[in-house]
């Protein structure tokens, strides 16, 4: 039996002020999967991702990345994951090139390997004309490309994308989709959160829906969407009223 790319068992996260953000979430993402992780704002998606990547400390439960415990063997586990976060968590005065290069440095990549990888990513995400501008001068779409390039600098086998296309124009969204499908085809496991159900429907093969810190539905995309479609299934799962005003 192969080791899953991500296994979360009974994860619970309670913040210092007592807010329960995640309440007993368990899920498994097999290697090579394109996994959609859906839920309304505040459902616990980002917190689950933060616990997986080291930004937050789990209160209880276990998270393994390719069989490696993210708390006990955090250094080894971190090498397997690339994170493209929802917020732009970068030094806004740095240039795209510096941001990507520094991240490669934190991962212990040597200068030559960093340069080669940074060159490739700058070109792949059409950042070459902008690579020496400061991050704060870039448009929203370009900023998204930079954080995605940063997540890919160490070529991680598991890529976690927390709303990667929020605020991105249609053209870039389609470019990103094509790229993500390409790297998934090459074997990279992708966990994607998004509020664009069309995006999830197009890209993901398996879906988990979370609400109020718990997984409320999980399965193959076709199975969850059923005959009414993903949007209705999502609204039912999260307890919201389905929209009866359909065009």
């Amino acid at each position: 039996m192969t080791v899953p790319a991500l296994r979360i068992s009974h994860l619970r996260k309670v913040y210092r002020r007592g807010t329960v953000a995640v309440d007993d979430i368990s899920l498994t993402v097999p290697e090579g999967e394109f996994f959609g992780f859906l839920g309304p704002n505040g459902a616990g998606k980002s917190t689950t991702i933060h616990c997986t990547t080291g930004i937050a400390e789990p209160t209880a439960g276990k998270i393994e990345v390719f069989g490696i415990d993210v708390v006990k063997n955090y250094r080894e586990a971190r090498r397997m994951v690339g994170l493209c976060p929802q917020e732009f968590n970068v030094d806004v005065f740095a240039t795209p090139r510096q941001i990507v290069d520094w991240m490669g440095g934190y991962f212990g990549m040597r200068a030559a390997a960093r340069k080669e990888r940074t060159d490739f990513l700058m070109e792949r995400f059409e950042l070459i004309p902008h690579q020496k501008k400061s991050f704060r001068e870039l448009s929203g779409g370009l900023k998204r490309r930079v954080v995605l390039a940063r997540a890919l600098v160490n070529d991680p086998p598991l890529l976690i994308l927390d709303e990667p296309t929020a605020g991105v124009d249609v053209e870039l969204r389609r470019v990103l989709w094509r790229y993500l499908q390409e790297i998934n085809k090459d074997g990279k496991t992708i966990l994607l959160t998004s509020h664009y159900l069309e995006e999830v429907e197009r890209l993901c093969r398996t879906i988990a829906i979370v609400n109020k810190g718990k997984v409320v539905r999980e399965g193959a995309k076709e199975e969850i969407a059923g005959t009414d479609g993903l949007e209705d299934a999502y609204l039912k799962a999260t307890g919201a009223e389905p929209d009866h005003v359909k065009g």
Binding site: I55, R75, R78, P85, N89, D91, W102, M103
Partner: peptide, 16 residues
């Protein structure tokens, strides 16, 4: 780094 959240770059990387 905390204020702009880029402290997270080091937290998600394999640095002790």
């Amino acid at each position: 780094a905390r204020f702009l959240h880029f402290i997270e770059e080091t937290l998600v990387s394999p640095l002790s």
